[in-house]
Every structure is written in C-alpha cells, then in structure tokens.
Nucleic acid binder design. Structure first.
Length: 516
RNA sequence: GCGGGCGUAGCUCAGUUGGUUAGAGCGCUGGAUUGUGGCUCCAGAGGUCGGUGGUUCAAAUCCACCCGCUCGUACCA
C-alpha cells in the first residue's frame, strides 16, 4: 500500500445549526430597536426585571411528559444533583415562576418588561432560529379586560415607535373563550382528550395561509393535500359543523373577517348572533366588545386594533383574550423574494400560569415581541441602520521607536478625548501600504500620517480616504498614483482635532446629500 | 417528523458515456513598490470532490446508508 501523506486532521470550525453569530450591524440595530421598545414600555409605567436563562425544567411548563428525557423542543441538562434544568423557551413561564416565588414582596398588579434570549430545540428555517430574542411586557394580578386592552394599545404604540406606519401593521384580537363557545356550539368531540378540538384550532389558525377553502378542507373528513403531494389529515367535521364554524367566524360573509375592509364591528355582532342560538356562553364575545369599546375610546381605531376570529396563538396556556401583531407590508428577503411575514409578536391572558405554583388565582396578561424576526422586517423596510457607525480615524505608524509611538498614542488620545473614534495601527507597521489598505477595507474615513520629517516639523499628513478614492479613479499608473497622494494635505500638529472634526463633518454632509 | 432538490478551493461555479496530475473567476498571501488604498503585471498558498461503505481494472461521476443545506408540509410553549 502506498503511504498517503497524512495531514493533521484540522478541526472544522462550525456553528450548531439554528444559531448565528451576530454582526456589529445586527447588534447595533438590535440595541436601537430594543431601546425604542423599552421607551414605550417605560412610558406606560412598566419596570424591568430579568430572570436567568436556565430554569428547573418542571418550573418551565406543564408540557413535560413523563419521559426520562425532558420534552423535545427544549434544551435540557442535568444538574449535579440530577435535577433537570432547561434553557427557557419563552419569557412568560420564568416570569410566572419569579412572581410565584416573590409573591409576598411584589406589589400587584405588577407591570414589568424584559428582553432576553430564548431557546427552542426545533428545526430551524429562514428567519427561525434555535436562539432568538424576545421582548415581553406583562401585567400580573390584573383580572379585568382593561389590562388586555392596554396591552393591545401598547403593542400598537410600539409598532409605531419602531417606525412602522399606521396601516402597515395591525393588532388582531380574539378570545379563547369565543373559540371554546364556537367549538361547543359545533358539538366538537369531547371524548377524545381534546384531539379533535386541537385539530380544529390548528385548522382555523391556517386561515392566513390557506384561506377559507383550505381551512374547510382541513376541518373536513378528507383533509388537505398540498402541492408537494403531502397530505394533512382532516379534523373530521361534518359539513354542518364546518358551516357553523365558518359562519360564526364570519368567513362566509365577505363584509366580515380579517380580509374584509376591516369591519370588526360586524364580526363581533355576527359572532354574537351566531352563538346566541346555541345556548353557549357569550362571555368571550362580551369581553371582546369591552376591549373594543376601551381601545376605541382611547382613539385606537380598527386600522390599528382589529377583532379577528382566526387568531389562535398558543394552544396551551391562554385562557382569555389573545392578540397578535401582524405586519401588512411586503417584505423582500435578501434573495429578492417576497415573503409573507405575518406575526411579529403576540400574547394573551394566562390566568392559570402563576396558580400552578401558588394555588392562588393570579390573573395575568402579557405579550411578547419576536425581536430578531421583527428586526429582519425592519431592516428590509430600511428602518434600521440608517446612520451606520463611522469607522475610526486611523493613526498610521511610520516609526516603531518609543518616541514616535508615544507621539502616535498622544494623537489618538487627543482625538478620543474630543469624542472621535480613533485607533492606532496595531499590525505590522513596517508595511506602510498595508496600513492604508487596512484603513480602506475597514472603512476608515481619515488616515493620519506622521513620518520623521513631519514629526520634526511639528506637522502631520491628513489623508481623506473618501476623497482619495475619488481622485484615484482618474489616475492610471501606479507611479503617478503614489506621487499624487490623492486626498492628502498637511497641517500643523496642533490643528489635528479641529481639522479632523471639520473634515468628518463635511464627509457626513456629503453622505447626507448622497442619501437624498 | 414526512416528501422533493442540492452538496467540488474562503466565495460563485465548470468537470464529457466512469479513465492519467480535479479546473476557472473572484478572494487571499508575497513580489514588481522600504513613505501611500485603487489600476496593471508576475508568483504562490489553498481540495479527506459532505461522510462511510459498496460495485468496478478504474469513482467527483454509479448504488446504499448517514450528515449538512434548501424548498414544501407537519409541529410550534
């Protein structure tokens, strides 16, 4: 056998799927967004609180099946005492734990917000990650629908604070009790552990995606087959049952429902009429009407807050009003395709979540914004990163002796003291060309050059990198190019700070003009 | 989870019916040029052809399984 030369196996650098490294631009955009959201919540009188990213698995939710492996979908590890801990998958369950644990010291109603990373161990997709940021606001200990109405208004205000125009978003509101009443009226099976109920809710949730016909198929016995030939089993309802649900939701009436001209008053009226004849509870409808009256009185019209029976949200813990924020404008992704963006946040009333710990009723309502997701949309809308951060001014190094280096440091510090981003070149200074190349690639607006001649004369060369690039286009030969030193001028050392400030201001002005 | 498509250099891709040493462009490094980015020219580095096994005299190419990416679907606290 011929001996193949064996190379040391290089370790493959790789990121677990569904996770991303965040770029400077992303981090700055997120910070900007989070600050905007925060200012709205603060104005509404909410205070921050933060919980750790790990919790004991049993505190996270009631979703733990009795298996030796904690629920799929969450990242879990065992502590050294063998207790299961999990990375949180939302911010609501940890908040419920926090409130339950501190119920004696927390003044209810407790109005609180927090932003944080959450983790889901699921299949990632475009815009869906296994680590993403949520920004939540909750009112704990508030039983009335006023609290829900406030949440809806605050969500609407948040959208606008982020620069999303009125009409480009809508807050859709529904009520879990309404859904329950409709399902009761339609005589959905109750002897199957809620399987049919879940199937029906999931079908209704697809209204946005598949429309009336698609939902009808999903509700029926036969189910729905998509383009790829994949078949989804139906919920098994009769035509009469489907009819009842459709007409309660108002989907067989073109003047009602979410795709109409936003006539949510009709939707509510229609719901009430449909449900009245079936001797089921009208509480849900009445709650929705109350929310409607509250938000309308506060000036939030149906172009901002709209009632929509297709809003389902999480199937597990919501007990009353549920709401979600949807973007209405088209989002184009980096491949140039138009993407149906849909919901960027949502929430609802979860009256049972704290009670799991305390046994006492602690009604709560809150919502969550998908920060990463919303950021993608805003980026595409051009609402973020408008004023990109200008790269630092580069002080180049011509001589490596202590005296010269000291001088460069002194220049850098004087710029910094004046509030100018500045840095001294930290690579191999002996290749001067590389220093300017570095400045160029890095996007530095200005390079400062001081060789021994300049130092002796108390002068520095200021090189306007942007102007230099412009002038270079007219120069063909490299010799001439070097000779010309485009965009460069000499000033006295003492003038560095004012000259740099002046040049930066003029560059900023040029950028502003270009942008128009 | 289920179904389709794809996987060749850092990136975008070519690679004939299975046939010698797997190529290009861009990028990267060095040089022309010890104090000036761009342009131009020269040179160089960089590959387990996603992995494993199989068929064959011979596999980047054919087959099986696995992994990854991607599209649809299911699930989504």
């Amino acid at each position: 056998m011929s001996e193949k030369k064996k190379k040391p196996q290089k370790l493959k650098a790789r990121l677990p799927r569904g996770f991303v490294d965040r770029s400077p631009a992303d981090i700055r955009a997120t910070d900007e967004m989070v600050a905007n959201i925060k200012s709205v919540y603060e104005r509404y009188g909410f205070d921050p609180v933060e919980t750790p990213i790990f919790e004991y698995t049993d505190c996270l939710g009631k979703f733990l099946p009795d298996q030796d492996r904690p629920n799929e979908g969450v990242f879990s590890v065992q502590d050294d005492d063998e207790q299961w801990m999990s990375l949180r998958y939302d911010l609501t369950a940890p908040l419920a734990r926090h409130v339950a644990e501190n119920v004696n010291t927390i003044q209810l109603p407790y109005r609180t917000y927090r932003a944080g990373w959450v983790f889901r161990n699921e299949k990632p997709g475009p815009g869906r990650f296994r680590q993403f940021m949520q920004f939540d606001a909750d009112t704990v200990g508030a039983p009335g629908v006023q609290a829900d109405a406030e949440m809806c208004m605050m969500m609407a205000d948040t959208m606008e604070a982020l620069g999303i125009k009125r009409g480009d978003y809508v807050i859709r509101v529904n009520n879990r009790k309404v859904l329950d009443a409709i399902l009761l009226a339609a005589k959905i099976r109750t002897d199957d552990d809620g399987a049919q109920k879940l199937a029906v809710l999931r079908s209704l949730d697809k209204y946005d995606k598949f429309g009336v016909d698609g939902v009808g198929q999903l509700l029926s016995v036969k189910g729905r087959t998509d383009e790829s030939g994949d078949h989804t089993k139906g919920a098994g309802l009769s035509d009469d049952q489907i009819d009842l649900i459709m007409s309660a939701a108002g989907w067989n009436d073109p003047t009602s429902g979410p795709k109409s001209e936003l006539s949510d008053g009709l939707t509510l009226q229609n719901l009430e009429e449909e449900l009245e004849g079936h001797s089921v509870s009208l509480d849900g409808v009445h709650e929705l009407s109350a929310i409607r009256n509250l938000v309308r009185a506060a000036g939030y019209d149906q172009d901002r807050i709209l009632f929509d029976p297709s809003v389902i949200r999480g199937l597990e813990y919501y007990t009353g009003p549920v709401y979600e924020a949807e973007l209405l404008f088209d989002v184009t992704n980096e491949k140039g395709e138009t993407v149906q963006f849909g919901s960027v946040g949502g929430g609802g009333r979860y009256d049972g979540l704290v009670k799991r710990f305390t046994g006492q009723d602690v009604p709560a309502t809150g919502f969550s914004i998908g920060v990463s997701r919303l950021m993608t949309a805003l980026k595409n809308l051009g609402k973020l990163g408008q004023d990109a951060v200008v790269a630092p001014v580069l002080v180049t190094v011509m001589d490596g002796d202590t005296e010269a280096l000291g001088k460069y440091q002194q220049i850098v510090q004087s710029l910094r003291a004046a509030g100018i981003r500045a840095e001294m070149y930290q690579g191999n200074w002996k290749k001067f060309g590389n220093q300017l190349k570095y400045a160029d690639r890095r996007g530095s607006p200005i390079a400062i050059i001081q060789g021994s001649d300049e130092r002796a004369a108390g002068k520095v060369q200021i090189k306007d990198m942007i102007e230099g690039r412009k002038q270079a286009e007219a120069i063909a030969s490299n010799e001439e190019y070097r000779e010309a030193r485009p965009g460069q001028f000499e000033i006295a050392e003492t003038e560095i700070v004012p000259e740099i400030l002046k040049l930066l201001a003029s560059q900023a002005e040029d950028r502003a003009l270009d942008g128009q």
